[in-house]
């Protein structure tokens, strides 16, 4: 449905923010993208909706329903946004126009893209509010964003994204700004909507628990590379890439309350300081001499694929 081939995103300074990513999303698929901030996961998502920020250079191929679309072909992207793919963002507080009633915000794409009249759009907006679990939906339609809680605003944004019945919903850290209880309900809502509507879901997060709860497949990103991929459950139970292993080990667990959490040594390097070979070189516990200079090949692992010179079970 949407596929990226050898997608590379460079900054104005020529630094590589996403390096040769290949990714395909099938109809109805629920794909999680995990990685730290700066790993390129948001740029990967933005390139799938044609919204990579101006000034960044995009190379490689983006296929939408079989059609290749250039990164700067705004007209072509506009045909697909809201209808083929929709996106919700991290910060629901600022993502809604503060001067517009939320009901009108959701009605806007219905009127502009689907040509519904005022009454029909309002009726659809009400349905969408109810579908996304907004309490007292009818009253909420007439309220302004500042009158809603964070969770309700994120639900409004989801309703807006669903308005034109997209094939893919991209959710970029949709729960990061919300408290844990609300976050849990939003992730469950996204899963339910994806199942009910046969809609693909790309769930971007640094929260492994949320991703494992939400998705069937997973892609792990580090320093602009996709370092591991496979079925979510299997990758997370038996990771092959040292970075994924480190991520999992650094997760707090109820079983081991007393011991200090292991951490991955060092911090994510700046884009300009990334090693030319494996991006994880320098922080990796199993580093080989060739890791710094040679980009690791993508190899099959018991649970999927990993880009590593020495994949395998580590001491997690």
């Amino acid at each position: 449905m949407i596929a990226l081939h050898n997608l590379t995103v460079r900054t104005t300074g020529g630094h590589v923010a996403v390096r040769g990513a290949d990714l395909a999303i099938q109809p109805g698929q629920r794909l999680g993208v995990v990685g730290e901030s700066g790993s390129g996961k948001t740029l990967l998502a933005l390139s799938m909706i044609g919204m990579v920020p101006e000034g960044l250079q995009v190379d490689g191929q983006v296929l939408v329903k079989g059609e290749t679309i250039a990164a700067d072909d705004e007209r072509a992207w506009r045909r697909h946004r809201a209808r083929t793919m929709a996106m919700i963002f991290q910060e629901p507080m600022a993502a809604l126009n503060p001067l517009v009633r939320v009901g009108d915000t959701v009605a806007e794409p219905l009127r502009l893209h689907l040509g519904l009249d005022r009454a029909a759009a309002r009726k659809r907006a009400l349905d969408l509010f109810e579908e996304t679990g907004i309490p007292q939906a009818r009253r909420r339609l007439g309220q302004y964003p500042h009158e809603l809680s964070g969770g309700q605003r994120q639900r409004v944004l989801i309703a807006l994204a669903l308005a034109c019945d997209p094939d893919l919903l991209i959710a970029d850290e949709p729960t990061t700004a919300l408290d844990a209880q609300v976050a849990l309900r939003i992730t469950d809502l996204l899963v339910r909507l994806s199942q009910d509507r046969q809609m693909a879901l790309m769930f971007i997060s640094h929260d492994l628990a949320a991703v494992s709860r939400t998705t069937h497949d997973i892609v792990v990103m580090y320093g602009g590379d996709i370092v591991e991929r496979g079925q979510t459950v299997r990758v997370l139970s038996d990771p092959a890439h040292p970075y994924t292993q480190g991520l999992l080990a650094a997760r707090p667990s109820l079983m081991h309350r007393e011991r200090r959490l292991p951490t991955i040594p060092g911090t994510v390097p700046q884009l300009f300081a990334l090693p030319p070979g494996c991006r994880f070189a320098g922080r990796c516990a199993r580093e080989l001499p060739q890791c710094v200079g040679t980009r690791p090949p993508v190899v099959a692992t018991p649970t999927g694929q990993a880009a590593c010179h020495l994949p395998g079970a580590g001491q997690t």
């Binding site: 506009r78 946004r81 809201a82 209808r83 993502a95 794409p109 893209h113 807006l160």
Partner: peptide
């Protein structure tokens, strides 16, 4: 950005 992502 939301408006742009909505295809307006």
């Amino acid at each position: 950005r939301t408006a742009r992502a909505s295809g307006f």
